[in-house]
């Protein structure tokens, strides 16, 4: 009996070693800074998902890390596995005396408010959390997705040859995604009313809509085959699938979303002309700085929405197009561009 038990354990050990060769992600913990008296601490709670999701969780965490470069503080994140753990995960940071807690995603809004009311000394940065009421100590970092979507639409309409452009989107259950699309459609129609914009949302629920790259890829392909030559992909990993698919086809362009996806999806370099970004990282850096300085704002904090750099496609984007983008932004801010409902 012992022999069999041990042989099984041995097999497990070997199997484990093989698997272990691909070391799993460890959670980064920076050693405490030099000042022993009181280290400033910044924590981050992700929405359900991982910190390296190439999307808002990752962008927020990168913001924390960027802020850390200038200011010396301790940082840590926790990944939420079960939506019911939001409170508990925030509490872990509070218990450890963290000064700033970044909570990512609208779904954490209620938990953030609850924690802020109980812990007025802690500053909370709520990424993508629109503040209906002002709660002291909570800065809701929000973005005008329609604006960056609009710029993407203008860019797409300017560079398209076929006059067919497409959008492959996560779910319409989430308003930021819808806003990106509204801006995209509105912007492209503003440049060229005759343009054919074909856009589609993932048909699944929240559980699959952002994590279905194969659907994104095959949908992008379906659009490409009916003439679309610019694909705007807005939908987490689903969108990443669409970007990579587009990169397989010569002479096409794709536009990423949320962050500069040039950095997060290198597979798409062949087509990625730009990304419709929300400057989550920079805004997080800014808010952390404000917190350190003791000037932390409460209520809504509008982060920047813009287009990411064009990287390899600088030459494709002519001065003319750049001017048009400027005009579009001005016109949008002057409420001169009408956006569709959905």
């Amino acid at each position: 009996m012992k022999k069999r038990l041990f042989s099984i354990l041995a097999i497990l050990l070997v199997a484990g070693l093989v698997l272990g060769a691909c070391t799993p992600k460890g959670t980064d913990v920076k050693p405490p800074a030099d000042d022993p008296a009181k280290t400033f601490k910044v924590g981050l709670v992700t929405d359900v998902g991982e910190v390296d999701d190439k999307s808002f969780n990752q962008a927020s965490w990168e913001g924390v890390l960027a802020a850390q470069k200038d200011l010396s503080f301790e940082s840590k994140y926790i990944e939420t596995k079960d939506a019911k753990d939001y409170d508990a995960n925030i509490q872990l940071f509070i218990d450890e005396g963290f000064d700033v807690i970044v909570t990512v995603g609208f779904a954490l809004g209620e938990a953030t408010h609850k924690a802020a009311k109980a812990n007025p000394e802690v500053a909370f940065i709520g990424v993508d959390q629109f503040q209906g009421e002002v709660v002291p100590g909570v800065a809701g970092l929000i973005f005008d997705e329609a604006l960056s979507g609009l710029l993407a639409g203008v860019l797409a309409a300017e560079i398209t040859q076929s006059n067919v452009i497409a959008a492959v989107l996560g779910t319409d259950l989430v308003p930021p995604v819808v806003n990106f699309n509204r801006g995209y459609v509105g912007g492209s129609k503003w440049v060229n009313p005759e343009i054919n914009v074909i856009s589609t949302y993932h048909p699944g629920g929240m559980d699959v809509a952002f994590t279905d790259p194969e659907w994104g890829a095959s949908t992008a392909k379906q659009a490409i085959e009916q003439g679309a030559d610019v694909i705007f992909a807005a939908g987490g990993k689903t969108g990443n699938g669409a970007l990579i698919e587009t990169a397989e086809h010569a002479g096409l362009f794709c536009i990423g979303v949320d962050t500069d996806q040039w950095l997060t999806v290198p597979e798409a370099h062949k087509c990625l002309i730009s990304s419709a970004t929300k400057d989550i990282s920079d805004s997080v850096v800014a808010l952390i700085n404000l917190a350190v300085e003791g000037k932390f704002p409460s209520g809504n904090y509008l982060g920047g929405s813009s287009l990411a750099p064009f990287h390899d496609f600088e030459s494709v984007v002519t001065d003319e197009i750049r001017t048009k983008l400027e005009e579009a932004k001005a016109a949008y801010e002057a409420n001169q561009i009408e956006l569709p409902e959905k």
């Binding site: 354990l9 484990g16 070693l17 272990g20 070391t23």
Partner: peptide, 12 residues
């Protein structure tokens, strides 16, 4: 739990 421990162990 032993299996879990082995996995944890080999992944550092």
């Amino acid at each position: 739990l032993i299996v879990g421990a082995v996995v944890l162990l080999v992944s550092g």
